[in-house]
Design a protein around this nucleic acid. Structure first.
Length: 263
DNA sequence: TCAAATGTTTGATC
DNA sequence: GGATCAAACATTTG
């Protein structure tokens, strides 16, 4: 669920509460989410000071005075400030002025402590908001597969997920099955620009809440109201009125306008 | 009641 | 390496 705009919104909503605070107590509750060991991780976090909070793609890094707390929300992860723990609470961080909870129904997310930012997690591609066109096109033009799965590949660029991939391809009028290396420089420029524009607009609207996404204060986003194609199969295309089509591409639901986005 | 779908990543295989 | 596919999990939707 959480893609770049949602993760950015979460970071912004919890940063003011957590920056500079000390982790008085940490409790890790899920082996699946915290593979580094529940007790080891809790012990490593206890007493650490939060110096900085960063986002790269969909990854969140709390820089500590001793290592880093890494959080990935997966599909259903939530970071909540001063909320009540529930059935799906997987980690509890008691800070000086309140409590930060990590809730995650499906447990595809991760909460880990690292002594330093590890290489493997750092191997994601450039952040989708910071990649310039030269680099974007350079990485794109020799790729063999379809453009849609490539946009979802975090090693290509990081931050774009299923919603924003579909919306960006619609805005750029590119069929999701188009081979990446067959996209002209001109059309690639349009796509790059639309990715930036859509991600920025989504952040302004505090993300997309399709089912259960909320920010650190438990607030839903509003950008889902502005989706043109995502989860709108059968509805008229806002540009030409043709019914939006849904196919499966790279095992993911893919939404597009068959008239505006020609193969 | 059951099958299918859900925004994520990882790891196996060719 | 790059592309493809199954799997991890729990809930909701048709």
């Amino acid at each position: 669920m959480p893609e770049l705009p949602e993760v950015e919104t979460v970071v912004r909503s919890i940063a003011p509460h957590t920056l500079g605070q000390t982790i008085q107590h940490a409790e890790l509750l899920s082996q699946r989410v915290t593979r580094g060991g529940l007790r080891r991780t809790a012990a490593a976090l206890r007493g650490a000071v939060i110096k900085n909070i960063r986002r790269r793609g969909k990854q969140i890094f709390f820089d500590l005075d001793r290592g880093v707390l890494y959080i990935h929300l997966g599909m259903t992860g939530k970071l909540l400030w001063d909320a009540l723990p529930g059935k799906y609470t997987r980690a509890v961080f008691r800070l000086d002025d309140g409590t930060l909870l990590y809730d995650d129904v499906r447990q595809f997310g991760r909460v880990e402590h690292f002594a330093r930012t590890p290489e493997s997690l750092d191997r994601v591609g450039p952040d989708a908001l910071r990649v310039d066109f030269e680099e974007f096109y350079g990485r794109l033009k020799n790729r063999k597969g379809s453009i849609k799965p490539l946009l979802l590949n975090q090693a290509f660029i990081s931050g774009v997920g299923n919603i924003y991939a579909d919306e960006a391809l619609f805005a750029a009028r590119i069929h999701p099955r188009t081979s990446a290396h067959r996209i002209s420089e001109r059309r690639a420029r349009e796509l790059h620009g639309q990715i930036l524009q859509i991600l920025r607009a989504a952040i302004e609207h505090r993300g997309s809440s399709i089912s259960d996404y909320v920010d650190g204060a438990g607030e839903r986003g509003a950008f889902q109201q502005l989706h043109c194609v995502y989860a709108r199969a059968g509805e008229p295309c806002p540009r030409c009125g043709s019914p939006i089509r849904r196919i499966v591409l790279g095992q993911r639901g893919t939404h597009y306008c068959p008239r505006c986005q020609r193969a």
